[in-house]
Nucleic acid binder design. Structure first.
Lengths: 239, 239
DNA sequence: TAGTGGTCTAGACCACTCA
DNA sequence: GAGTGGTCTAGACCACTAT
């Protein structure tokens, strides 16, 4: 699996420390081995150990105190990864995630979509609309736009059962590294209100989100409406 | 000001690059100088340059492509800093931020507050309730709890005019490095509905947020109600 | 082939914390 | 004073991208 020997040493150290935290070998608020000890454990130089620790500090998993050592952050570990997607979040909370696909088609990008995805108006985008459910209860209506050129033949996948994020990563090597999200409220009526609230109207939580890959290229523009009484948006903010 | 010569070289490099981006010397999507060139510019070793670039990459300001170079992220620069506080956000958008203090007192921590701030139930906390306004229009009601032991004599400040975040940083050296936030919707009635919506009832955007300092210690617990028609919560999510 | 970033070494000196 | 992390050097070899 992971531990292949061509993996850089610093990544092995990161993996090792994360595993120790998950296993409870290193406990929340407790110290991890000193840099010197990690050098000996992994038979490497101090700079290599420090590269690993720097990365764990920047993701919020560890914090350091000069003269004292490095410690496991006391923020709940699971929350440190925010970009999980609906499917994974629901799975972790013990619900069965499912989706009902309302539409899935290629359309030319409108002016708004083209601006968000930084493509030319009229370029083709995949438009995927889904109802997201947890254990059968509708929690959100999600409209996603994806640049067709980045995801050729996407129509062969069936997103009522597949996770969109998993498919993008596995089949296209596209991973959302960073997203910019705006959240507010909006009155909904008609079909949307029926789906979310089983009423003629209601107030939904609305999220606009642009997802970027590692080269800071936009690869996803999403507009989602949530039943904000049944669902919360969790985010972690770094300075 | 900043450029004092005891500042570490890598921080000078970070400052320099950020300034060049702000000034438009390095443009969005464009390359910055190569590592070798930066070594010569700052008369330092490559590892020092790389430490600076690593930090800029991890905050999303730069991205790299092996064999090609390092480039300025195309995400809007201003959005890369999320933890700004109400005062600063409003200032940037050209509104005049003001606050009306509803109450400001020391109280013993309830069970819930104690758990969030990781203190003992009954320990004293400052409780600050404010109405946040932009150009005179009420946008939110904010209730903040702060551990009294970390902020002695906080009552001498006047938070209808002072920024809480600025005061915490300037007077106590406390800076929120990371926050965990949960957002949903809630029905509000009575006084709260009057303040936010000038009606007897409405649906507000509700945010629970815990702010942590660099040692991952909770230093702020905030419950805020927003008029989600007039105000949006902006966040940036990293993976 | 030349230039770029990716990984790594084996030291050095400093500042801080704790006993 | 012993142990910790913070900063830094002057090299090395590799993988990738361009031309």
């Amino acid at each position: 699996m992971e531990g292949s020997s061509q993996m850089p040493i610093y990544k092995k150290i990161i993996d090792y420390i994360e595993k120790c935290i998950k296993n409870g070998v290193y406990i929340r608020g407790g110290a991890i081995p000193s840099e010197q000890e990690l050098c000996e454990m992994f038979q490497c130089s101090r700079m290599t150990v420090r590269k690993a620790l720097d990365e764990l500090v920047s993701t919020g998993i560890l914090f350091k105190a000069q003269g004292k050592g490095a410690f496991v952050s006391t923020i709940e570990y699971d929350r440190l990864y925010s970009l999980k997607g609906f499917t994974q979040i629901m799975k972790e909370q013990g619900y069965e995630a499912s989706s009902e696909v309302l539409s899935f088609e290629q359309v030319p990008a409108s002016d708004e979509i083209a601006r968000k995805l930084r493509i030319i108006e009229g370029d083709m985008v995949y438009s995927l609309a889904r109802i997201r459910k947890a254990s059968g209860v509708a929690l959100s209506i999600e409209q996603v736009y994806l640049p067709a050129i980045e995801l050729p033949d996407l129509e062969k996948y069936e997103f009522s059962t597949c996770s969109l994020y998993e498919t993008m990563e596995r089949e296209y090597g596209l991973r959302i590294e960073r997203a910019v999200q705006t959240i507010n409220t909006v009155e909904v009526t008609g079909e949307q209100a029926q789906i979310l609230f089983q009423k003629d109207q209601g107030v939904a939580l609305r999220s606009f989100s642009i997802g970027y890959d590692k080269n800071s290229k936009p690869i996803e523009y999403e507009i989602a409406l949530y039943n904000g009484y049944k669902y919360s948006i969790d985010v972690i903010i770094n300075n």
